[in-house]
Design a protein around this nucleic acid. Sequence first.
DNA 1: GGAACTCGCCAC
DNA 2: AAACGTGGCGAGTTCC
Length: 440
Amino acid sequence: MALARAERQGIRVDLDYCERKKEHLTKKIQHHNKRLEQTKLYQLWHKIYKGKTNIHSNQQLARVLYKAMKITPPKLTESGEGSTDEAALSQIDEPGLQWILKIRKLNKIRDTYLAAFTRDQYQGYLHPSFELHNVRTYRSSSSNPNFQNIPKRDKEAMRICRRALLPRPGHQLLEADFASIEVMISACYHKDPTMLKYLKDKKSDMHLDMARQIFILDELDRSKAAHALLRQAAKNGFVFPQFYGDYYANNAASLCDWVKLNQNGAWKPGSGITLPGGIPMADHFRDRGIKSYQQFLDHMKGVEDDFWGNRFRVYSNWRESWVSKYRKKGQLQMLTGFECSGELKRNEIINYPIQGTAFHCLLFAFIELDKIRMEEGWKSALIGQIHDSIIMDIDPEERDHISNVLKTIVKEALPKAWPWIIVPLDIDLDAYEVDAAWLK
DNA sequence: GGAACTCGCCAC
DNA sequence: AAACGTGGCGAGTTCC
């Protein structure tokens, strides 16, 4: 019912802006099209496909690149065909591909996001569906339009799309995000003492510790830009993928992307990002006995063994026993009481309970907040939810009260209702300007 | 002309 | 033993 009420409230959308921006994008796309048509790539393409030439066909592109031009595919798709995704194309040195990538990106913004906003709006408001019956883990899904995948990381796409979404006049948009909710919930299952210490002690920093170990640096200082990047690399290139069931060989490749080192053979002195003090990453590693990608791979194998065998031994044991229990019973039961059955792979078995339970914490907060909103007759509205965050359209006068209510729900009501929560949950609020779109 | 499929790409 | 988890959706393509 709380989700249904959010659907009915809706999100205000700037229709004039959407129309203007779609036209603007169309002109830009036409311009990139003209540049593409001047390339050798396109001329060969047109020679093969004549009147059937379609620059949006990846099947045609694959045949031009990998058959006609005899380029070796840098990577393959799931079904074994030569891939034409961004990662593949950016490894091919062929003028023309840059225009394909630019056109793809602008098309995506125009046809997936802005077009959906104008198509799905009713009287200037979007009413995306939030559904609870689609996802195997008991998370939610969203559609018509999907409110849970609006661009954020790519700054250009983010600005163009989010500029279209507004608060009601005189109001402001507000996001309330659970802090590290999946890691917090995982700890409620495995109760690993090392992990619990990381989560309870605000001075400790798991990702920084992992960066120290991965990059063999004793002194790491988050306030230095290069060190902050190494921490990000450790977090997104090792720790989180490991939690999801990834392994060291993939991590090693990803980490090399982060620090700009080769993924084959020896590392050239002077290569890689520069560390504080002006030392190149490759030289730093060389002085510590790692001179090539192969040696880095061996190093990462050791880091992984230590991660699960020593640092998070209890977490690792929980995974194994959780998998055996599922295999014995054919079913797993979450801390919320929800069950999953059917054929599950190892990584699914260890991920589902964490993902589903984390979302149920969000749902608990969403429902309680909505209840209090109705009881107290707020002008502010709950308008959506993105797995671990609540999106509101608020009256600025009510902001402090909403903040207090939310903090109380998350820090007091939630752990009281669910005593298996043995970690300190928190939620961070982030408000946008009054009358401003969904961007900073 | 619609269903079902692949591929690519956006979010958490 | 296994090799990153969950979705929605647009465009192209193939099948019926």
